[in-house]
Design a protein around this nucleic acid. Sequence first.
DNA 1: CCCATAATAGTGTATATACACTATTATGGG
DNA 2: CCCATAATAGTGTATATACACTATTATGGG
Lengths: 141, 141
Amino acid sequence: MPTDEKKPSVCNCLNLRRASSALTRIYDDKLSASGLSISQFSIIKHLNYYGPLSVSELASKIRLDRTTLVRSLKPLEANGLIIDVSQKGSRNRQLQLSDKGIAKYKEAEVFWKDAQNYLEEKLGKENLETLVPLLSMIERL
Amino acid sequence: MPTDEKKPSVCNCLNLRRASSALTRIYDDKLSASGLSISQFSIIKHLNYYGPLSVSELASKIRLDRTTLVRSLKPLEANGLIIDVSQKGSRNRQLQLSDKGIAKYKEAEVFWKDAQNYLEEKLGKENLETLVPLLSMIERL
DNA sequence: CCCATAATAGTGTATATACACTATTATGGG
DNA sequence: CCCATAATAGTGTATATACACTATTATGGG
């Protein structure tokens, strides 16, 4: 029986990556009944909130590499959750949720809220309010 | 000019993933002169510290999926940084750093320390000491 | 007005990751 | 002593990610 069970590493990058990986698994698990991963949910959540957006605008909002987003959009468009409503002849795509996409978002949002509440309960509201600005600082480095 | 420049998301999973991604890029950049990524450095750091280990033991120490580790070991073994010193006929592999691996570790450790110091300077020692236990809590969820 | 540049989208390729599964060897309970 | 199970390692496949690059269209300065 190892006594060093899940002690933090001296490497703070590894600590952050382990936490990120663990939390991603929790959100993915909670969302699994909806058929969406947290990264897919993140995309449709942003589209639901910010209305029609070009690929570049959406990538910028999510702060995800645009070329990553291009790949991630594929199954969501193939599944009819996201549609392109750009005018004929426009060079820009204008992505927005279809009715099916809106319904899927509302369905998945319940599971996402479960995950959010789970984290808040387990960590405590105060800890979470401490954590978030620190994560934001790291993102801005 | 967007005024919502890098504000945290309401989604705490996304906040954590963004921070993890940003910090990974910083560590990868600092390490790039050594030719190692932070995930490769993590592997040789653990081997340097914990001596010869089987694949399963090493995966358990790093808290990385064993099958992921199997793939990540490939280039490090091909490059002669890691060698298998198991006895002939043993079913277990016994991985340890070669002399070349030890030298590479020492070389890369300098860059890793740069990254560690960079984070501590930018975030502040106190913030870091607040952050690490919170990350550990999340990993244990 | 036209061409160099910017804006936009996408592809080729590579790394990092893990789940489901297979293969092989070790081992202990009957 | 032997076979069911555990321990160990690896492969097939899929998702998530981003860098370097290409292709196409828009646009503004001369």
